[in-house]
Amino acid sequence: MKFKTFVTSPSLENKAFLALMIAASLAFVWILLPFSGAVFWGAVIAIVFMPIYVWLLRKWKQRRTLAALATLFLVVLMVVLPMTLLTGMLVKEGAALYQRVQSGQTNFVRYFEQVVAVLPSGLHDLLKHFGLTDVSELQARITEAIGRGSQMIATYVYSMGQNALDLIVGFFVMLYLAFFLLRDGAALTRRIRAAVPLAPAHRQHLAVKFITVIRATVKGNILVAATQGTLGGLAFWFFGIQGALLWAVLMGFLSLLPAIGAGLIWLPVALYFLVTGAIWQGVTLIIYGVFVIGLVDNVLRPILVGKDIQMPDYLVLISTLGGMAVFGISGFVIGPVIAAMFMAVWDLFATAREEALATPEPREGDTPAGPATPEA
């Protein structure tokens, strides 16, 4: 190919434009990385609260700015303020628990000794084989773990104080972005769909799947977590367990994991009651955990999460764990979204392949059938 032909070819122009577009997109993502969390949660807030915005928009005769501001006010009132109050109470409860452990008022080693003392001899020998019955070693391990935990908390609190300005800026970036995504989200969505080089039906299917999964994951998981945490905290308060609020928050957080969630907290407590002679407390807590706390997970989660995202529980569990391992707390949304998009893309591919294989290809020499002509 001659040089003049090469430099003036449309193919070169298309490749150059594609390279420029990719470079500009990567540079844009790079400059957003410091506020990636704020951008992500701003988009999530806009997607989750979009139905409220649309309803207000109809009520207020298409006044977009006013409807977006009102929706944002509801976000602050329903989400931000309760989370701020809960965080303050949780910090206070955690500090009180740490002081009780340090003073010996709460002694996990003593609880462990009480459990080991009533175990069958076979199980006791098994624990002894793994060195779990050595009280002094166990005390050293617990003390070391508490020390590491307290150090991590102190470091985290110190870093929050040092980065207070970044937190405040990120918070306002999140709300600012959510406002504009609410107000101008429909036009932006149409523009993005038009730019995506996919078939219109595929674009529509993937967009609906993406929005559905985010709404179902956020609303469903948060509602399940809040319900299970509240029910578990009330049970712990009823039985006089210290730090009920802290354990309630832990149960709520762990309930993000389907099936196993809150049981990781209330089941060991129930077993402790049983092995230490508090039979009615242990039996009551097990019944309450299985048929009340567990019922929330078995009834609400399939309705709010599984029904909409159409994923089996094991895939939701694996994608949630993997997402949180990679992306932190935001992973409980990102993980299922990636899994759902993975399933949707491969489902589209499989469907298109089946349709292509079911349609016979024309053989060489075949001519398309035309209208019959009468013989002469």
Score class of each variant (00 low, 15 high):
residue 2 K to C: 07
residue 6 F to R: 00
residue 7 V to L: 03
residue 17 F to A: 03
residue 20 L to G: 13
residue 23 A to H: 02
residue 24 A to K: 07
residue 26 L to D: 03
residue 34 P to M: 09
residue 45 I to A: 09
residue 46 A to N: 09
residue 49 F to M: 14
residue 61 K to N: 14
residue 70 A to H: 01
residue 71 T to N: 07
residue 71 T to Y: 07
residue 72 L to N: 11
residue 72 L to A: 07
residue 73 F to A: 10
residue 76 V to A: 12
residue 84 T to P: 02
residue 88 G to L: 13
residue 92 K to Q: 10
residue 94 G to Y: 04
residue 97 L to C: 03
residue 98 Y to I: 01
residue 100 R to Y: 04
residue 103 S to A: 12
residue 104 G to C: 07
residue 105 Q to I: 04
residue 111 Y to I: 10
residue 112 F to A: 08
residue 114 Q to L: 13
residue 116 V to S: 05
residue 117 A to G: 03
residue 121 S to Y: 11
residue 138 L to A: 05
residue 142 I to V: 15
residue 143 T to N: 14
residue 149 G to T: 01
residue 152 M to H: 10
residue 152 M to F: 14
residue 158 Y to G: 06
residue 160 M to E: 07
residue 161 G to I: 07
residue 166 D to R: 10
residue 170 G to N: 11
residue 174 M to H: 06
residue 176 Y to L: 14
residue 182 L to V: 08
residue 185 G to M: 06
residue 186 A to S: 11
residue 197 P to R: 11
residue 198 L to W: 13
residue 202 H to F: 11
residue 214 I to G: 02
residue 216 A to H: 03
residue 218 V to E: 02
residue 219 K to C: 05
residue 222 I to E: 00
residue 224 V to R: 07
residue 227 T to Y: 03
residue 227 T to K: 04
residue 228 Q to S: 07
residue 230 T to M: 09
residue 238 F to T: 12
residue 238 F to C: 09
residue 244 A to N: 02
residue 245 L to W: 08
residue 247 W to M: 11
residue 249 V to A: 13
residue 249 V to F: 15
residue 251 M to G: 05
residue 254 L to Q: 05
residue 255 S to R: 05
residue 256 L to P: 00
residue 257 L to K: 03
residue 264 L to D: 03
residue 267 L to G: 01
residue 270 A to W: 10
residue 271 L to N: 02
residue 273 F to C: 02
residue 275 V to H: 00
residue 277 G to Y: 12
residue 279 I to Y: 15
residue 280 W to D: 12
residue 282 G to E: 07
residue 289 G to T: 12
residue 292 V to T: 05
residue 293 I to M: 13
residue 296 V to T: 14
residue 296 V to D: 04
residue 298 N to L: 12
residue 298 N to H: 11
residue 301 R to S: 04
residue 302 P to Q: 05
residue 305 V to E: 03
residue 309 I to F: 06
residue 313 D to C: 02
residue 316 V to P: 01
residue 316 V to D: 07
residue 316 V to I: 15
residue 316 V to H: 14
residue 321 L to W: 04
residue 322 G to M: 06
residue 325 A to N: 10
residue 329 I to R: 03
residue 333 V to G: 06
residue 333 V to M: 06
residue 334 I to P: 04
residue 337 V to P: 02
residue 341 M to Y: 05
residue 345 V to L: 13
residue 346 W to L: 12
residue 349 F to R: 15
residue 350 A to S: 14
residue 350 A to H: 11
residue 350 A to G: 05
residue 350 A to N: 10
residue 358 A to G: 15
residue 360 P to S: 04
residue 362 P to G: 10
residue 363 R to W: 10
residue 363 R to I: 09
residue 363 R to P: 00
residue 365 G to D: 08
residue 365 G to Y: 06
residue 367 T to A: 13
residue 371 P to V: 13
residue 371 P to S: 11
residue 374 P to Q: 08
